[in-house]
Design a binder for these strands. Sequence first.
DNA 1: AATCCGGGGTA
DNA 2: TACCCAGGATT
Length: 355
Amino acid sequence: MIRKHDDFATRLLRWFDVSGRHDLPWQHPRTPYRVWLSEIMLQQTQVKTAAPYFERFVAALPTLRDLAQAPLDDVLALWSGLGYYARARNLHAAAIRCVELHGGELPRDLDALTALPGVGRSTAAAIASQAWGDRHAILDGNVKRVLSRYHGVSGYPGLPAIEKRLWQLAEQHVTGAPDARMPDYTQAQMDLGATLCTRSDPSCVLCPLQDDCVARVDGRVAELPTPKPGKTPPQKYAHVLWAEDAQGRILMLRRPPTGIWASLWTLPQADDEPLARDWFERHLSGDYAKAEALSPIDHAFSHYRLQLQPLRWHGTRLRARIGDNDALRWVAREELGSLGIPAPIRRLLETRTET
DNA sequence: AATCCGGGGTA
DNA sequence: TACCCAGGATT
């Protein structure tokens, strides 16, 4: 096969050496544990957002064994505000499994890595290639975007047929990377997609692949990758009960381990106002009618929108037969920081903290 | 293979 | 507001 240029990997690495990101927190030192943690945090999350969480997390739990031994609540508290909390629960479960099955280390084997909860094909490949320099192709959002453009692949990359084609191309390109440079090759693909081959307004004139990028040559850069087909998510409503006792402590509820905001601490929630009253009457003593209705909170999930109407009371007490327990407890304001709390609920509680 | 699931930041 | 970001799990 005759090539007009050096191959994909060679050009990409030459660009990376000059213009790649070499000072990300998880690169110094680049240990398997830190690489793994960073890959999980970076799932569906941008570097800028994840970086401060990463630093805080490794400071609190420096090793995989520390993570395995930590209570889940501590892990969720470190994750609080980062979103996609199943990642934190999977991370914790995976650490425990590594202690049980792999001597407290991450396994250097793609199938064993993929078997860990929260680790799929691309994440396993990213870990193995960066932590040990093993030769594996990755296919994250960045690589999908780069390859869609470079090869002119039309169709939403989330579709199985398109994704299969992109995996084929990724596997093809990875053969061109030098043995000693697998960690850099993996990082280089992500850097190219994140800093240069961006979704909107990419810097094609600086791109090492511009000469034979199909999208560039055909003037289709703005149309690729094909965007996700749109759909209007349903709007849902709920009331949240913000009850405080005489000491100003807040009644918090631990959500079940599955579903939205799994295992996180939130305010008690009811699907409508009569159910909110019902919950209040069953659990609290006080005057329901004294509720202060605060301004509603709008929160968007990927598959529906949720509007929360907060109702607030002061000086309430739990009914005697309910009592404090594992899933329902009074929380002092100073304790809020140590609990895993969804971002909109935390914002609600902290912006109204002085009233 | 198709479908489901889910927080937050940004343009 | 629409969109999507270093995807994975379930069916």
